[in-house]
């Protein structure tokens, strides 16, 4: 089962303890629960080596793109031939080639990955419960539950999730749940030769990222900022956040990612109003028909 995510089985049911014992148990569980973990990706030190992509594929036993590697697909528009995250590419180093004229320009590199959103759109809409939040505050897809309805694909504002054609289920980065649950670092950050990808507790990463932004700005890179690090920002913050030096759209990121349920109330209300209109107009027109026919039937008699 190369694509199955190992999920801890629930403990066998035990008699419910009395209230004070429950409170004590909850407190000890909270103390034992691991801290939220995540990635901080500093794009300014990414060299585009794609070691993270390879390490991810190797650890997670993901196939090569397309037909399994028999034919190498070339993008034809970039030195980057991966182009996008997919069901079998959970890490993707984007090459943003900003060359308005030959010899004058720059390369931006960004190792893209699932953002493990604090308020995860994919988890919210998943109708089978296949998408779960782990004890590390990361978001994972249980491959044995997913039935491939693809609702999560349209819900993800970052275009992260895709169908893996080997498993036939939706797949994405698990933040190497199998590695971090035994105290190991995810394969991608372990392989990163420049520490562009850093893994650790979110609070620690945010502090480190803030210091790095200050350092860059002091050195003259005034455009440096953090994308997704703010816990009060869109989606409650991202557990995989980035240091960028250009607009989010340049990196293929939405400026303000949103929850899909933002349209739920308004869309449902409009539909409900429409439904009442249909029922009301239908009933009224049938009543009107009856009245008209009764009048027509009684008309000649009255004359």
């Amino acid at each position: 089962m190369p694509f199955a995510l190992p999920i801890a089985q629930p403990a066998p049911a035990s008699p419910r303890p009395p209230a004070p014992a429950r409170a004590a148990a909850n407190a000890s569980l909270a103390a034992a629960a691991p801290e939220p973990m995540g990635f901080f990706t500093d794009t300014t030190v990414c060299i585009g080596c794609k070691a993270c992509e390879v390490a991810c594929k190797e650890w997670n036993q993901l196939p090569a793109r397309g037909d399994g590697g028999a034919h190498l697909e070339m993008s034809g528009q970039s030195y980057d031939n991966t182009l996008t995250l997919s069901g079998d590419t959970w890490r993707h180093v984007k090459f943003i080639e900003q060359f308005p004229e030959p010899y004058h320009g720059r390369w931006l590199m960004m190792s893209d990955v699932c953002k493990h959103c604090v308020q995860a759109p994919c988890l919210e809409v998943c109708p089978t419960g296949a998408i779960i939040r782990t004890e590390f505050d990361t978001v994972a897809i249980q491959s044995d539950t997913c039935n491939g309805c693809r609702d999560c694909i349209s819900a993800c504002p970052f275009g992260v999730i895709e169908i893996n054609h080997v498993s036939g289920t939706a797949q994405k980065c698990t933040m190497c749940y199998d590695r971090i649950s035994v105290g190991l670092e995810p394969a991608c950050s372990k392989a990163c030769p420049t520490d562009s990808i850093q893994f650790g507790p979110i609070s620690e990463l945010r502090t480190r990222a803030g210091a790095r932004v200050a350092q860059l700005q002091a050195q003259g890179e005034k455009g440096a900022y953090l994308y997704g690090a703010d816990p009060t920002g869109p989606l409650g913050g991202l557990n995989a956040f980035f240091l960028l030096v250009d607009e989010p759209e340049v990196y293929g990121l939405p400026r303000e990612p949103k929850m899909p349920t933002r349209n739920l109330v308004r869309g449902s209300m409009l539909s409900t109003i429409g439904a009442f209109m249909m029922a009301f107009v239908g009933a009224l027109s049938l009543r009107a028909r009856r009245i008209t026919e009764v009048q027509q039937a009684s008309g000649p008699k009255g004359e």
Partner: peptide, 10 residues
């Protein structure tokens, strides 16, 4: 913002 999502193959 909606242009950065992937099509779900509906």
């Amino acid at each position: 913002d909606t242009f950065f999502s992937s099509p779900p193959h509906f």
